[in-house]
Design a protein around this nucleic acid. Sequence first.
DNA 1: TTCTTTGCAAAGGTTTTGCAAGCTA
DNA 2: TAGCTTGCAAAACCTTTGCAAAGAA
Lengths: 177, 177
Amino acid sequence: MPAYTASALKAELNDKGWRLTPQRETILHVFQNLPQGNHLSAEDLHYQLKTSGHAISLSTIYRTVKLMSRMGILRELELAEGHKHYELNTVSPHHHHHMVCVQCNRTTEFDNDSILKQCLKQIEKSGLQLIDCQLTIYTICPEALRRGYPGLPENWMCNNAIAQSQPPVQISPGLSQ
Amino acid sequence: MPAYTASALKAELNDKGWRLTPQRETILHVFQNLPQGNHLSAEDLHYQLKTSGHAISLSTIYRTVKLMSRMGILRELELAEGHKHYELNTVSPHHHHHMVCVQCNRTTEFDNDSILKQCLKQIEKSGLQLIDCQLTIYTICPEALRRGYPGLPENWMCNNAIAQSQPPVQISPGLSQ
DNA sequence: TTCTTTGCAAAGGTTTTGCAAGCTA
DNA sequence: TAGCTTGCAAAACCTTTGCAAAGAA
C-alpha cells in the first residue's frame, strides 16, 4: 500500500497551482514500487520507464524528480557517482543513511535512529524546519587499502566490496594518465 | 601553523611514486589559509589563484583536488549546488557537518560529536575503515516557507537566510519556465 | 634520464532550457 | 479557455582526457 497516493499528490500540486499529469503519476508509482534500498538516477528511471512501455522524456524526468524533491516527496542522494539518485523520502520507519566505498562507489544502507535525533536537536536549536538529513560515511574496502589505495591502477576494482546488495557501479576514472 | 606541511605532503606523495609540484604545494596552502567554515569549488580555487597571481590550469586543479581527496587531505563536499566543494579534512578539532537551505543553498557548519561517534560505531560493526563522514541537514529558511516554497518564483531568494557567514550562492535554476 | 605532471583544447556526461504543441483544471 | 506541462533538440555546465612540452626525482 502506497504511503502517498496519487490523489494526495494531486491535492498538493493543485494547492500550488500545479497539475497532476500522467507522467507525474507514473513516476510516483515507480518510486513507490521500488524495492527498499534501491535508488534511481534520472537515466535509470528513463530506461526503466522506456522498457516497461511508459516512455517519458528525459527532460520531463529531470523536471519531475526535481519538483518532487523540492516538495519533499523524493530524497535526492549524492553518492559520489557523478550524478544524483532519488528515492522516496519516507520519514519513518524507512529513514536511513548510506555508506560508500570511495574506491568502487558501492553503497550500503544503514539505519541509526540517533542520527535523526541529533538532526532534530540541531534543527530545533536553529529554529528551522527539517526537510531531510543524510549521513554519508565514506569508507574504503579493506582489500583496496591492502593493495595500496590511493595508488591503485586506474581500473582496479574492489571485488570484495562492502555490500553485495547493490550492483557494482563504474569506478570513477583514475587519476593517472 | 599549518597542520599538514609541504614536506609531509611530499613524503606521502613520494611514497606512492608521485611528485610534489609547485602547483600542488600552492593548492595545499590555499586550503590551509582558508578561514574556518569556507569551502571552495574547483572554479573558486581557479579564480582565487588567478587573481592572486598564481594561476594554475583548471585541469590541474581538478586533478589535484581529486588526488588530495583520495589521499584524505581534502574533504569533498556535495552541498546540492551542482558542483563539489572542498575543504581541509581535519579530523579534530574541526570535524563538522553542514546544514543547507534547499531554497538558497546557503550553508552553515555545525559540530556534533555524537555523530562521529555513531559513524565509528557503524564502521566498526562492518569491519571497515572510516575515511570521512558527512551529515548534511536539508532545511528551508522560515521566510521561504512562509512565502509558499516550493511554489516560489524562480529567482526569489531568501534574504534572511540561515547563515550570514557565507556569501549567498546562486539559486539553482527554477522549475517553472 | 626517466617518468610524472602540467596546460591546452577538445570531448564527455549530466542537467537545463527555448519553443511549439498538447493537455489539465 | 488559460496557462501549466510535455517532448524535442540544442545549449549549458561541470569534469575528464589526449597529447606534447615541462619538470621532479
